[in-house]
Computed example of a mutant assay.
Amino acid sequence: MIRLGVNIDHVATLRNARGGNHPDPLTVAKALVGSGMDGITIHLREDRRHIRDADAEAVCAWAGKPVNFEMAATAEMVAIAARLKPRGCCVVPERRAEITTEGGLDVANHRDQLRPAVARLKDAGIRVSLFVDPAPEQVEAAAEIGAQVVELHTGAYANGRLGEMERLCAAAELTARLGLECHAGHGLTFANVSPVAALPQVTELNIGHYLIGEAILTGLPAAIAEMKRLMIEARMR
């Protein structure tokens, strides 16, 4: 019905705060099989602030769940992804100073820069997603340069911006009309996930920080199971 990709970047954040090897992202990923998780998302940032190269290699080599590899459209990251061959890559904007991804890619104004990265990833047999704001010009540009998936940035919706749910709905409909698969993510919680999960065009949600935070109270398998229950219930209404 609808898939849940669990972003485990902040397992690595916790490990890196102390140093050493615990908690290990791959060990956590393996422990979550059967919890309702359908895939693993990792973001190998240029500054390696959480996930590191060794983590990416280990997680991508693991055959337990499909891996969604978030990355900037740099030559270094394209080369790493082409070597590791995750199930999919989601190209995201990245700035060194940001705390987290602050918005979608400006595909409409950077077609020429993004098109070669998309082509090389596809040539490596990787399914390519572009992380964009829910704006028609961005969705159309993603289709034009060959992306197979659009992941809609839900951050503005999660922050309560007026009219954002309507923009997400329109962007999801356009994505489907253009023949692309539609994913969504960023800032989703138990309290706000249902309207996004109810969009019939959305096939996957990628959620990380909230689940890791909720795990402090309830445990990660329980937090994932509750999120997946809310997503499925939203589709059945």
Rank of each mutant, 00 (worst) to 15 (best):
A17I: 14
A124P: 05
P86V: 04
G5E: 10
D24L: 04
A170Y: 00
R161E: 09
A170E: 00
A75V: 03
V132C: 10
C60R: 00
K85P: 06
T218G: 11
A171D: 03
A61F: 06
A223N: 06
P134L: 07
L162S: 10
P195K: 00
L217D: 10
Q201I: 00
E164R: 15
E140N: 12
Y210A: 11
C169H: 03
E98G: 03
I224Y: 13
E76K: 06
A72M: 05
N159L: 13
V33L: 11
T41A: 02
A141T: 06
A58D: 07
C90N: 03
V193S: 09
L220K: 08
G179E: 02
G5L: 04
R49L: 02
R96C: 01
G160S: 01
C182H: 03
Q148G: 14
D106A: 07
L217W: 12
L205D: 14
E57H: 14
G179F: 05
I212L: 11
A97P: 12
S194W: 10
L114F: 02
D133K: 03
Y210H: 14
T175R: 08
N206S: 02
L230Y: 09
T13Y: 03
V149L: 04
G19F: 14
R45M: 06
R48N: 01
H43S: 00
G155L: 02
G219D: 08
G208Y: 12
G88K: 11
K30S: 07
G219I: 15
E137I: 07
I216Y: 14
T189R: 04
E98K: 12
E46C: 07
R115T: 00
A75P: 14
F69P: 01
E70N: 01
P66D: 01
H50T: 01
P93T: 01
Q201N: 00
M1N: 12
P134E: 09
I224T: 12
V196Y: 00
R111C: 07
A184K: 01
R229I: 10
E226N: 10
P93G: 00
H10V: 11
C89H: 12
V196L: 00
A172K: 03
H153Q: 09
G5D: 11
A119M: 10
G39C: 08
L162T: 13
L14C: 13
Q201A: 00
A156V: 08
E173C: 02
N109E: 15
L174V: 08
D123G: 13
L217Y: 14
E137W: 12
P23G: 02
N206H: 03
G213C: 06
P93E: 07
L152T: 06
T218C: 13
M231G: 09
I8Y: 01
V33N: 09
P116D: 01
E164P: 05
I2V: 15
L105G: 09
G208H: 12
N68Y: 05
R3M: 09
L220V: 14
Y210M: 07
K85A: 11
I145A: 04
M236R: 08
D53M: 10
M231Y: 15
M227T: 12
L230W: 06
F131H: 01
A75R: 10
M231W: 13
V150C: 07
